[in-house]
Design a protein around this nucleic acid. Structure first.
Lengths: 194, 194, 194, 194
DNA sequence: AATGAATGAGGTTTCATTCAT
DNA sequence: CATGAATGAAACCTCATTCAT
């Protein structure tokens, strides 16, 4: 399995750094190879082409991202706590890895439509996790039962994504994780039974 | 003033069409020139460079976009109606111009960070309009007075933006404007005093 | 018409020289451009791609080659004179242009099958000219009437081609045109009624 | 002696198949190694480099080719029969091995000048055999005594080569061996005393 | 003797921009 | 004002060959 070989991971890490530092368009394969400490050609033993590095990077990092969030949520009892945990973990993981934040919020969006569709696929489990929380809230009669699920999901994801992007664009000058309770309150308010 | 000359507008319109039809990366200056019915070199009599076409396009279209929304809002009395109008107009204008929707939601985001910063500048008056509504709601004690303004603004804009992007990605198969009341309810709920 | 513009011809001439001097595989587009005194990109205003330079080169040169032979033949009365003229002109034209001889006999054959098929198409009028002479000889009862036309054509072309290739491979150290009468005698003998 | 080891022959056979099936330029060393059932590196225990595979292939196959022709000729008495046998055997051996025919007539000619010179060396014994027959014919006063030996040799080889190449290019749709008597008649006629 | 992972040089083509007309 | 022919920099990927195991 190529994904477990050390060079696979080396190249992914190098790609995150190079893209964060140079921007998407100035991130030549040769630059990534140099940072990873391998020959240019070696890249192509592990990845089909340049786009495949980016998709794999996103799969790898997003996989961990989602796994950590899911694990944390599973330790919480109430729907409200679960949502707070999701928001906190979403913010915390990107706050802890500035390079990754730049890559996911800014640089990877400069890719073409095909790559974007692949990225959307990777995001599906995360969106499903959001759906689970919403549905649980509805079942427990904490949230209103007239909620339009896709709409609520898009609101939650859109809000988190916009907040992180703003934070990155403002060069990460403030504490992103501290925003979590405020965002949590807004969302809980929006969804709750009066 | 160059902006009022017919060729300026011709080129902008051609750019919207070409980018919507071919995608950002396949939209060469020569293609835009051809669609606009001018020579390649003529483009550079009206725009400093390719990026300037895109920024101008966004300024021009976003200017109209914001103006229409502001005009409509000014005819409304209540904060709730103003917010609903903003949401409806945001959705309606993009729903009525599929090409523009594709360009703003998908293609223009493939640009580099510099262009993105310029685009953000153009968006400022729109975000200010959102702020005005929020503040009005707080002053009228319809909205809670502990709201974090930037956070709420990012929630509103992020939600609208994500919903439109989803609609474009799903090839605009459903009625976007019909989503407005549901979104309005969610937001009003989230911001209201209990 | 691009084919009549001076740069078109410049590039063709440069390609012949560069390929003859460096060999097919060492003839980069940039080398041809430099020799032609144009920018690399200019090549692509006149030719679709590198292969197109080669096909055009062959069409251009072979067109002239065949035209000169046809013109010369038309001034001759007897079949025997026509055949001698064809052989002499075939040899003379390549003998007078060593670069072209190297390119057609050696370098252009290193191309892939697709290019070879295109080259074969260009050769068709020449082979048709050979056929005409053979048929005339048969009609005038100078040649036997049991001749297998394709076979005879292949014998004549194969013989001339092999002789020229040998001359090129031996670095053109002897007088190719002087071989013409001997070759002519062999062929006439082979085809004549006893 | 490496040439007698089984892997040497395996690799040669694999090369013929791979080149015939994929064409010269798509025949990577790794593909040949895979078809031969050995590791890439193993190739270099038996051959100095890629070109050496091709030269060795040609030597091996041409050696057998010439040996069979020589053996068959030696069983014939008359010059005319010997020539007919040479033509028939030349055609038959390639007709019986389509892969080899493709490789020798088409694919191997896409190689560079150096390889072509080496291939010419391998052909020398065959050309010498042709010379022998011609000289015998002259001595027996069946052929004219004013023949230019190299010219006649080039005529015979060029004719046979062109006929086989045409047959391969036309995808071997007709019976090549049936062409032999016609070709034989043409050549005998061309060389005979009147 | 055999393996196969790793190497790294090298070239075609695109396209934003210029400037002589 | 307008044209459009010409420019030339820049990068992804392949594949013959090596060498540690």
């Amino acid at each position: 399995m190529k994904k477990n070989k050390p060079k696979y991971k080396q190249i992914i890490e190098a790609a995150v750094e190079v893209i964060a530092e140079n921007g998407y368009h100035a991130s030549q394969v040769s630059k990534i190879a140099k940072k990873a400490g391998v020959a240019d050609g070696t890249i192509y033993l592990y990845f089909a082409n340049k786009e495949d590095i980016l998709v794999s990077l996103f799969e790898e990092k997003m996989g961990q991202f989602i796994e950590k969030i899911t694990n944390s949520i599973n330790q919480k009892q109430s729907v409200s706590e679960k949502l707070l945990t999701l928001i906190e973990m979403h913010f915390r993981q990107l706050a802890e890895n500035h390079h990754l934040a730049i890559v996911t919020q800014i640089e990877l969006r400069q890719s073409n439509k095909d790559l974007r569709l692949k990225i959307n696929k990777v995001l599906k489990p995360y969106l499903a996790t959001i759906d689970l929380i919403i549905n649980e809230g509805v079942e427990e009669k904490i949230f209103r039962n007239d909620l339009n699920l896709p709409l609520v999901r898009q609101m939650i994801f859109g809000t988190l994504d916009e907040i992180v992007t703003n934070w990155v664009m403002k060069e990460q000058k403030y504490d992103l994780v501290k925003q979590a309770p405020g965002v949590h309150a807004l969302i809980i308010n929006g969804l709750s039974v009066k």
